[in-house]
Simulated scan of single mutants.
Amino acid sequence: MTATASPQQPAPPPQVGVIGAGGWGRNLIGNLHELGALRAIADPQEANRARMAEHYGPLPAYRDHRELLADRQIDAVAVATPVATHYEVVRACLEAGKDVFVEKPLTPTPAEAWALAELAEAEGRVLMVGHLLLFQPAILWLRDFLASGAIGRVRSIHQERLGLGRARDYENALWCLGSHDAAVQRFLLDAAPTAVQATGQCILQPQIEDDVHLHLRYPGGVESHLHCSWLWPEKRRSLVIVGTAGMVTYDELHQTVTHHRKGIDERLENRDEGAEVVYHGHGQPLRLELEHFLEAVRERRPCRSDGRFSAAIVELLAEATEQLRSAPAG
């Protein structure tokens, strides 16, 4: 009689502690719980800790994140605290031997961001930043579509992230909204910009731009134009990419990608062979993002939005903001 090998049981997910159980932290906690990866939380607010206990039962809940880091059953940490605290908290996590997922932006300054990226590498730890749009299935599909040459060489990128949003008193619209699109550009082009130009307007508060235009130039002559604002009457989330052999649009609100077989040739004659939706689907980017993080922790693999990728985004945002601050008053 031949013995039948029993199916191999999947490895249990890494155990994750979440620091910060506020608005976005609750989303992380809920998804990690469903993935079987939630081990503990830490939040200085008793009300937040009580709310999590009500939803998830007897879960270790600490007032101080340093208590959470002392838990040896925790493999990794997800950080959802105010951006101003990221450097201190993430550094403590890395020095405690934990892999780290932290919400974007990585830090408020390039020096701090690069320091964390280098520390993670020195410690052999995973450091991943929550650039959520990089885990939207349509963006992944679009990257492959561009690589296939379907619209020829990319010549320009145009993005809008507009709406009547929640104004901030500690960061401008570029840091709050445009960081999503800057990350998407870098991911799709796999390149860093060679020139940066930013203009903006402070309408509600001094030194906080509510409306920003960011213009970037990339190697090979590619240029991009981003308009982001939280003071706008209509909600728009669009991406247009113009190539030498066609164009493509991504409607983030409806999760559709449309291929436009049109353009203007070298004789300045218009060509229009119609358009079709070539991708349509709704994913769960936060769930996919956290699954990617858990896999990177378990398999010790590089992650899509690692420390170096994310530090470069912080550097870009800081350079653009410096231009905004030094612009003459209008």
Rank of each mutant, 00 (worst) to 15 (best):
E295Y: 02
S326I: 04
M128Y: 12
L140F: 02
A111Y: 11
P302C: 08
T81A: 14
R236E: 09
E299M: 13
L59T: 07
L116N: 10
L239F: 10
G178T: 09
R26I: 01
G283I: 05
D144E: 15
A40K: 06
P206N: 05
V314P: 01
L162W: 02
L239I: 11
F187W: 14
P233D: 13
T256Q: 13
E322S: 09
R155A: 14
T107C: 15
A80S: 15
G57W: 02
W114G: 04
F101D: 01
I241A: 09
L288G: 04
L216S: 12
Q45M: 13
I29G: 03
V154F: 10
K98S: 05
R125A: 12
H65A: 14
A173C: 07
Q255A: 14
A70M: 08
R236L: 14
W141C: 00
D99F: 06
L239N: 04
A195G: 04
V89W: 07
H55K: 11
V18E: 02
A37P: 05
G307H: 05
G330Q: 08
V257I: 15
V77Y: 12
A138L: 03
Q197E: 11
A312P: 00
E95R: 05
Y279D: 03
R91C: 05
H280C: 02
A312F: 02
L286P: 02
R168C: 11
S326D: 09
E315N: 09
L188S: 10
A37G: 07
G57Q: 06
Q205P: 01
A245R: 15
Q73C: 05
G25M: 05
C202P: 00
C228G: 07
Q8D: 03
W230T: 00
H180R: 08
E160H: 13
R261L: 13
H292I: 02
L288W: 07
R236I: 14
L317I: 01
A21P: 06
Q205A: 10
D64G: 06
R325I: 00
T321F: 01
A320W: 03
E121D: 10
E276C: 05
E118F: 06
E295R: 14
H131Q: 10
G163Q: 10
V242T: 15
A96P: 03
V83N: 14
G263Y: 11
P82E: 11
A183C: 05
L146S: 01
L146D: 07
R308K: 12
G30N: 12
L162F: 04
A53F: 01
G200Q: 02
P12A: 08
Q201G: 02
T244F: 10
L69A: 11
I157A: 12
I139P: 00
F145V: 06
R153N: 12
A147R: 15
V102T: 15
P58G: 03
P105F: 14
A183Q: 05
V196M: 06
G283V: 02
R261I: 03
H259K: 12
E322Y: 04
Y62A: 07
R300I: 02
V196G: 06
A92T: 06
